[in-house]
Amino acid sequence: MHTIYQFVSGPLAWIAFILFAGGCIYRVAALLHTVYQKERFIFSYMSWRHSLNSIFHWIIPFASVNSRKHPVMTVVTFVFHISLILVPIFLLSHIVLWDEAWNITWPALPDGLADVMTVLVILSCVFFLARRIVLPEVKYVTSASDYVILAIVAAPFITGFYAYHQWPGYSFVMILHILAGEIMLIAIPFSRLRHMLFSVFTRAYMGSEFGGVRHARDW
């Protein structure tokens, strides 16, 4: 038990964080390098003002026409993404680990709120799964990898929720939880979860083209 714990929270965690950080840097650098090599003209159209304008209209709920057309999806996706990012970073148990390992600390979310947000993430995943199965236009473009990605994202939250409530098999689930978190981190730069990195660039480019050349809104 101790050996497994030390392994998953030690070397494996190192590997996960290195692959995550290194992978993200590599992906973005490779993207920009390819632009530089093959489509350098893109840089000349980029504009901070129009990029930010476009990004803001899409990261504020209901600020774009399409987000108003799908109110349920909009609420779910915003709640999901906000919780998905905030809970792992501001969970007390995680901060305790950072404090022990690196002597750094920051304010935590109340456990009760984090618990609710975790449930929201899990329910959102169920909603996304249902969309994939039920809506024809989503089903048509769904591949096996979409389900795998959804499972990768849901797993840390399902195991985390289970472990927090200390239901039977606690220590086993905790190990699974750590592993699931590491898998998700690694998956970010190496699967379509990299939309976390790339969407900023695709949005900014579209915003720059629409704002700077086309003089039209893209939201």
Partner: peptide
């Protein structure tokens, strides 16, 4: 003839189908 755009567009799409009604 193509580069980062094609790659980013193909790899970033999460198959959400939200473009349909456009």
């Amino acid at each position: 003839e193509t580069g980062a755009r094609l790659q980013a567009y193909v790899e970033t799409c999460v198959h959400c189908g939200l473009c349909s009604e456009a």
